[in-house]
Design a protein around this nucleic acid. Sequence first.
DNA 1: TTATTTTTAGATAATGATTATTAATAACAA
DNA 2: TTGTTATTAATAATCATTATCTAAAAATAA
Lengths: 150, 150
Amino acid sequence: MNVHSNSPRVEDILQRLRRAGHRITPQRLAILRAFADSHSHPSVDMVYAAVKPNFPTTSLATVYKTVVLLKELGEVMEIGFGEGGNRYDVRVPTPHPHLVCTRCRRILDAELDALDHLTETLAQSTGFRILSHRVDFYGICPECRRKAAH
Amino acid sequence: MNVHSNSPRVEDILQRLRRAGHRITPQRLAILRAFADSHSHPSVDMVYAAVKPNFPTTSLATVYKTVVLLKELGEVMEIGFGEGGNRYDVRVPTPHPHLVCTRCRRILDAELDALDHLTETLAQSTGFRILSHRVDFYGICPECRRKAAH
DNA sequence: TTATTTTTAGATAATGATTATTAATAACAA
DNA sequence: TTGTTATTAATAATCATTATCTAAAAATAA
Ligand SMILES: [Mn+2]
Ligand SMILES: [Mn+2]
Ligand SMILES: [Zn+2]
Ligand SMILES: [Zn+2]
């Protein structure tokens, strides 16, 4: 496999991994690529399934440990869901709103320019020091709506 | 104990429990009151701890089963948190924004009049049929800020 | 009331995603 | 190439929640 076939995002992370003294193993590279390639905020299982064909001996525990490492370095954001496992965003690892389709389980990024201003207003009115947020909208995505309209 | 010492909210729920053919047991009453009395969106463990002194034989499983029942009837809203267990809102069992203090773990209701309009705008621009939401702001509450400023 | 039926409580086992453990392996500096 | 040591893979442990099962309690019938 061509060593230059990585996205800029993957190259960035690889550099910071090396700088922090971590080793670049084939497993890590494959897991990292799987995370970065996905646009649907994958779960650990989804990444595991994507890596398995190329690295059949890969352990699920290794995927989990890579997630912990990437979280520590701030390179992945965990989106917690009780049921059916957490989801991850390696492309944009900072808090931002999401649209969650409850039918196909896809998760899309949402644009909400008003959010920052809203947060500031809330902080002023409540006295809270707001440091982060979790903003999810649940519903049915356009594709699932089209399918449902037989 | 006076049978009329319940809040209107508790009375409402009791009526609907009876109407649905469920029995009002002392355990259920105690658990229900503990949920309704709390302003901090308690966890199952917190409710269990509140009930234990009055009903020492109460089982944790009974608290969990009461939660399931109340969820089915739409009388409690579950707020999922991966770490340390879920939290519950019996006072306002419909989606609304929350302020979560990451220091003392308290959860407060937040007023966000702009949210409905925001949701509609987002639905229009994305084609999603938005049915629900989860809006949490994480930070340090005023009391914890005061304590931190020794 | 007493008997019969159904619901619920309490104890505890099972579940499932995640984390911890540990011996074997391999990345990488010298 | 070799040695050091991080990492892997397999698997056990964890922990909140759910399921199971029996006894007790409550509703219902007789
Ligand atoms: Mn995202
Ligand atoms: Mn609330
Ligand atoms: Zn969909
Ligand atoms: Zn606080």
